[in-house]
Computed example of a mutant assay.
Amino acid sequence: MRITCTSCNRELSVPDNKLPDAPRFKIKCPQCRKEIVVERMDKLDHSFTSASFDVSGVVEPEVFPPGARVAFLLIGEKSWRNAALAWLNAEKYYQSTASTAHEAMLKLRLNDYQLVMIEDREDYQSVLAEIATWPGLRRRTVNLVLLGHDAASLDPQISFRRGVNTYLSLADAARCAELMDSVLKGYEMYYQYLRLAHEQAMG
């Protein structure tokens, strides 16, 4: 979908599969930072009016330097959230965060992240359900980490059952740096295996 900023006239090209599944939404122009209200005619329910539709939540296409490593966090537990942000800063990751499941889903639809960390909470299950619908190629390029109370950190069985790359215990915030180093090494080994399998399949 092509979107033109009404303030600076910059044209943005947003892939259709990254658009929020909503009739109206807002984004910020990466050039002038002004808000753009976008209407999708294919999704528009004409029984709604502009006055009755809440566009208070801003969905921004995030702009990062080419080749940058970007992490997305949906973590409500403060000790893990703070520890993860500190580790990401030390590892030179750019970061994006959300405070609600709705905001998280909009960001995940609009942006690409290499690392996604989500707390295993009831009100975040819709985000995990959406990630489970991602096509295989997209899912394989995302290192998905789930944080919860149901198992010890790095337990491979619960990781497999929950469809994530790694499961970490919320009780282990003090071990964040050590555990996240293991998370990255494990994913790199997994990704190398995928590349090798792909090369062999291609002959």
Rank of each mutant, 00 (worst) to 15 (best):
residue 120 D to Q: 10
residue 112 D to E: 14
residue 49 T to F: 02
residue 101 A to R: 00
residue 34 K to R: 05
residue 106 L to R: 11
residue 155 D to T: 08
residue 123 D to V: 02
residue 130 E to F: 13
residue 110 L to E: 01
residue 56 S to I: 13
residue 98 A to G: 00
residue 49 T to D: 11
residue 126 S to I: 06
residue 141 T to P: 11
residue 117 M to Q: 05
residue 66 P to V: 00
residue 111 N to L: 00
residue 111 N to P: 09
residue 101 A to V: 03
residue 103 E to K: 04
residue 150 D to A: 10
residue 119 E to N: 10
residue 101 A to N: 01
residue 160 F to C: 03
residue 90 A to M: 15
residue 120 D to H: 05
residue 90 A to G: 14
residue 89 N to R: 12
residue 77 E to Y: 12
residue 81 R to C: 08
residue 134 W to F: 01
residue 155 D to M: 03
residue 146 L to V: 00
residue 79 S to E: 11
residue 58 V to H: 14
residue 148 G to Y: 01
residue 141 T to G: 14
residue 53 F to S: 02
residue 37 V to Y: 05
residue 119 E to G: 03
residue 42 D to P: 07
residue 118 I to P: 02
residue 37 V to R: 09
residue 33 R to H: 12
residue 98 A to W: 01
residue 153 S to F: 08
residue 54 D to S: 07
residue 117 M to W: 04
residue 105 M to P: 04
residue 155 D to Y: 01
residue 56 S to G: 14
residue 44 L to K: 05
residue 45 D to H: 01
residue 67 G to T: 02
residue 91 E to I: 12
residue 39 E to V: 15
residue 51 A to V: 14
residue 77 E to M: 06
residue 121 R to G: 08
residue 151 A to C: 01
residue 116 V to P: 05
residue 58 V to C: 15
residue 70 V to I: 04
residue 48 F to A: 09
residue 69 R to C: 13
residue 143 N to H: 03
residue 95 Q to Y: 13
residue 124 Y to P: 01
residue 144 L to I: 02
residue 136 G to H: 03
residue 156 P to N: 07
residue 120 D to E: 10
residue 65 P to C: 01
residue 59 V to C: 13
residue 154 L to C: 07
residue 104 A to F: 08
residue 68 A to R: 01
residue 150 D to R: 12
residue 119 E to P: 04
residue 139 R to P: 08
residue 160 F to M: 13
residue 135 P to M: 02
residue 99 S to N: 14
residue 70 V to S: 02
residue 36 I to H: 03
residue 157 Q to C: 11
residue 58 V to S: 08
residue 152 A to E: 15
residue 65 P to D: 02
residue 157 Q to T: 06
residue 138 R to P: 04
residue 156 P to D: 08
residue 100 T to M: 00
residue 102 H to N: 14
residue 153 S to E: 13
residue 52 S to M: 12
residue 79 S to Q: 09
residue 72 F to Y: 14
residue 140 R to G: 15
residue 71 A to E: 09
residue 82 N to E: 06
residue 97 T to I: 11
residue 111 N to V: 08
residue 79 S to F: 06
residue 108 L to R: 03
residue 153 S to I: 10
residue 98 A to D: 00
residue 90 A to D: 15
